[in-house]
């Protein structure tokens, strides 16, 4: 099944642009962007399996650790830098957002919204760390070390002086977004932000 979040991200990416996909995994999003939007794309990932999977697909990929920043990438070298569903796994998320808008004209970040009503309820009523379809890990083995909410990310953008060009909400990676967003910080499971430097 095609991922709706990938489609929404693709809609934000200009045709033929240069794209850098951070934590690109097996390169599926990149592949779609190259195929559907004719982008010149490359990825970055820290895992050997991911790099090998990308090379198998014929993608251009850089083996690197995002926690060390993007020192190997020049200022303004890309039109769009994407970080899909991985912000919460990085040690220094604020630094990487800064790096994204340094390397790219536009940054697209998607992440699970920790203020969705299900984690809120689990914590409020159950008194336990939330475990759900989107965040399936127990607290002691989760790779998600920096979870945030839609409001949190907006606040970070404000502090970093970033302009929010688009803000999209989803209730799942395979679920069509609602026509109108009502109380997104409560109702959206995922959010996609497109930001630029002011």
């Amino acid at each position: 099944m095609r991922r709706i979040d990938y489609k929404l991200i693709a809609d934000l990416v200009p045709h033929g642009s240069t794209v850098l996909d951070l934590a690109c995994g097996d390169g599926e999003l990149l592949n779609q962007l190259i195929r559907d939007k004719g982008v010149r794309g490359s990825g970055v990932d820290v895992s050997q399996e991911a790099v090998e999977a990308c090379v198998t697909k014929g993608l251009s990929v850089f083996h690197g650790d995002l926690d060390a920043g993007l020192a190997d990438f020049a200022d303004g070298s890309h039109d769009v830098v994407i970080l899909s569903m991985s912000l919460q796994q990085l040690r220094r998320p604020r630094m990487i957002v800064r790096e994204m808008v340094r390397v790219g004209r536009q940054a697209i970040v998607s992440f699970p919204n920790f203020a969705h009503w299900t984690p809120r309820l689990q914590l409020f009523l159950g008194g336990r760390m939330p475990v759900s379809r989107d965040l399936p890990h127990q607290w002691w083995d989760t790779p998600n070390i920096h979870l945030c909410t839609i409001k949190d990310f907006r606040a970070l953008c404000l502090e970093e002086g970033l302009r929010i060009e688009h803000e999209l909400y989803l209730s799942g990676i395979h679920t069509q977004p609602p026509q109108r967003a009502v109380l997104p910080n409560l109702m959206a499971r995922l959010a996609i932000f497109a930001v630029t430097r002011c």
């Binding site: 240069t18 490359s42 090379v55 251009s60 850089f62 190997d72 990438f73 070298s77």
Partner: peptide, 19 residues
């Protein structure tokens, strides 16, 4: 090796890097 990669990338050549 990264110096090679960066120079290739500057003109958008197809390049992958693995350490």
């Amino acid at each position: 090796l990264k110096e090679i990669v960066s120079a290739l990338r500057a003109t958008h050549k197809h390049v992958s890097y693995y350490e």
